[in-house]
């Protein structure tokens, strides 16, 4: 009944000699060098393609969220924080520095013809700071179609990165999940329409105070949520405005209350912060 007491491991091999150690070290080093060379070579091909894919997907998501027409454009505004906690914004045309009270202090034009990475380096060189976030503005001509803010929250497992899209009157146009590491079938359902579309069409104030409930999602409302996406928001909202008014909560994913709440809280915080900052920036944009 008792386990093997006093069992000794059989056949302990003798420790490697000096020569053996040298051979082992050389062998492993060669294998690692060859592998590194192969991977490095492949990387130089695939990484640019990977980045291009990422950018293309991002641009498509942004255009869809804000329903930007062909003639419109999306501008990215990056936010940096200096060591003395002053905000610095990099718009397509200007680098704007704010003082502690949020009043515009410096404004200088961005040099032409720099790619993304170089612009970022230039900005951080001009005003020593670190990158902390960004948002996008959808424009047609000079008219603002809407904003998309990038946010981060801690989900059940790791960080969840998402976009929150709003129109000029601070009504939500939608939420898109960019990155997550939740479990497929459970927390991973946050990317599904029946969850993320529950935010669309509501005012920022309503979302600010909205609760996550464990009640089950009614079949009709679920079907309505699933149809948003193929149908753009501008067409969907008039049809479902009344239903939206009846469901004034966020229905959590079955078995993933924590992920559902994390995304909701993240969206709420992102909206709150953005509204504060937009006030300061409105003139500058």
């Amino acid at each position: 009944m008792s386990g093997c007491q006093g069992c000794k491991p059989k056949n302990l091999s003798p420790p490697p000699s000096g020569r053996d150690l040298v051979k082992i070290t050389i062998g492993l080093t060669i294998v690692c060098l060859i592998s590194a060379a192969l991977l490095g070579g492949l990387y130089s091909f695939t990484e640019p393609a990977k980045l291009r894919n990422g950018k293309a997907r991002e641009a498509a998501t942004l255009r869809a969220l804000l329903e930007v027409p062909e003639t419109g454009r999306i501008e990215e505004i990056r936010r940096y924080l200096t060591n003395d906690l002053r905000a610095v914004y990099l718009t397509p045309k200007f680098l704007i520095g704010l003082d502690e009270n949020g009043i515009e202090k410096t404004r200088e034009p961005v040099p032409e013809g720099l790619d993304e990475q170089k612009r970022d380096e230039w900005a951080r060189a001009r005003q020593p700071s670190r990158y902390v976030g960004r948002f996008f503005v959808g424009k047609q001509g000079e008219q603002v179609l809407g904003y998309v803010v990038e946010g981060v929250t801690t989900g059940y497992k790791a960080k969840v990165r998402f976009f929150v899209a709003m129109d000029g009157q601070m009504n939500l146009r939608g939420v898109e999940i960019l990155e997550h590491e939740e479990d497929p079938g459970l927390g991973g359902e946050i990317v599904k329409r029946y969850f993320k579309n529950q935010f669309a069409g509501r005012s920022a104030d309503e979302v600010q105070g909205i609760q996550v409930v464990k009640d089950p999602l009614v079949a009709e409302w679920k079907a309505a949520l699933e149809s948003l996406g193929p149908t753009p928001l501008s067409a969907w909202l008039p049809q479902h405005r009344e239903e939206l008014g009846r469901h004034k909560v966020i229905y959590a994913i079955t078995g993933s209350t924590i992920s559902s709440q994390a995304v909701t809280t993240g969206v709420q915080k992102t909206i709150a912060n953005f509204r504060k900052r937009l006030e300061l920036l409105k003139g500058a944009l």
């Binding site: 592998s35 492949l42 695939t46 393609a49």
Partner: peptide, 28 residues
């Protein structure tokens, strides 16, 4: 492959191919 270090070497081989797959999938 030196028998004394075969396990690390096998692991490196697998890691190599996994990374290749990962990069190809991400890119294409």
């Amino acid at each position: 492959i030196n028998p004394k270090i075969r396990i690390p070497v096998y692991t490196i081989i697998i890691a190599l191919w996994v990374t290749v797959m990962d990069m190809l999938l991400a890119a294409y």
